[in-house]
Design a protein around this nucleic acid. Structure first.
Lengths: 185, 185
DNA sequence: AATTTCAAGTGATGTAGGTCACAAATTGGA
DNA sequence: TCCAATTTGTGACCTACATCACTTGAAATT
């Protein structure tokens, strides 16, 4: 079964013809390690689904520090949602930490598919709800846990990310300096 | 015009009959200052919309500290989304900071309305997307800004919250101690 | 009107985590 | 295969913010 179908069918069920119709709206692309999907200042009309590889979404602050918003591994969706939804220019970067295979859908195709296909609207709505809940939990973790606790929670929740990305990246996701993270254990 | 109709029509348009049908799924309740809407350990099958008043959603950590997840003023939606969506018991408290008037809809009515009424699904999907974006921005602010900067950003973005709630509450939303917040200016 | 409770400011002191600097180990190009 | 870049660890020192303790004043509560 197509990996995207498996992924969607974790939430809603699809007929063969329905999935083919959905898949027709996606375009595959490949990117190599270090290449960018999105850079600051661009208008974003694509949402990406990771077939294979690993990416990060991050912002650069005035002092040049990187702050990681999100990692994306196989089966994850990624884009600059602020730019995508509000049709403003991106404030973030998304680049590949490994060679990547992706499928993307444009904003207009996503909307078209949601309109004509109630089930897909429900699928995306559910994904967004869960993303929102995860983000609220991350806020709470930043408010109530120490750096060490946050690292341990992340190790428990996303062991595969810990294995695949450098500690420097983990540090910049957790909101702690590289040096401090290195001294935690 | 009914305040809920005005609120919904900021996103989608509704006929008179359609709005009446939507409103029929909501139940009004009043709560006094200090009363709870939600307490830890409960199953949550209601989402609330604030007609009048001011509430906070917060967690209590092991050392008894309160961490505010969200404030809710007029026109805001509030519930424990984790408990509501995943049908698990609540880990949070929601209480009234002022006397409140609310409208609530149950989970099953919300789903029914979304099913039979594509427009309402779109309305809620949009609300969730925007909540998700706001939450990601809050994560970023916690990662990259100092306590003082976070306070200033909040003052600019939510001046009405700053005016209505105590500094102690603001501190526990910003992730800073009461004392430090008091020394910032 | 009296009493209790809560909000808010401020001094003194403690600490988690940041910053800078350097070295060793690992990875990746050309 | 060699050179350059990147990652990771670690020591020395610094700082933003926390904690504790106390005071004052304003709101609630009776």
């Amino acid at each position: 079964m197509h990996p995207l179908r498996r992924h969607i069918e974790e939430v809603i069920s699809l007929e063969d013809a329905e999935f083919d119709h959905v898949l027709n709206h996606f375009t595959p692309i490949k990117k190599r390690k270090h290449q960018y999907l999105i850079q600051e200042g661009e208008l974003i009309n694509k949402e990406y689904w990771v077939v294979k590889g690993c990416l990060r979404a991050y912002v650069l602050d005035e002092s040049g520090r990187e702050h990681i918003i999100q990692f994306a591994l196989e089966d994850w969706w990624v884009t600059d949602y602020q730019a995508f939804e509000k049709e403003v220019t991106s404030q973030i970067y998304i680049d590949c930490l490994e060679d990547c295979e992706l499928l993307y859908i444009t904003k207009s195709d996503r909307e078209k598919l949601s309109q004509e296909f109630h089930k897909m609207e429900r699928f995306w709505a559910k994904k967004t709800k869960f993303g929102y809940i995860a983000s609220q939990n991350r806020v709470l973790s930043l408010l109530k846990n120490t750096a060490k606790e946050r690292y341990e929670l992340m190790s428990a929740q996303y062991p595969n990310i810990i294995q695949r990305v450098s500690k420097k990246m983990i540090a910049s996701y957790l909101g702690v300096s590289r040096e401090t993270l290195s001294r935690l254990y």
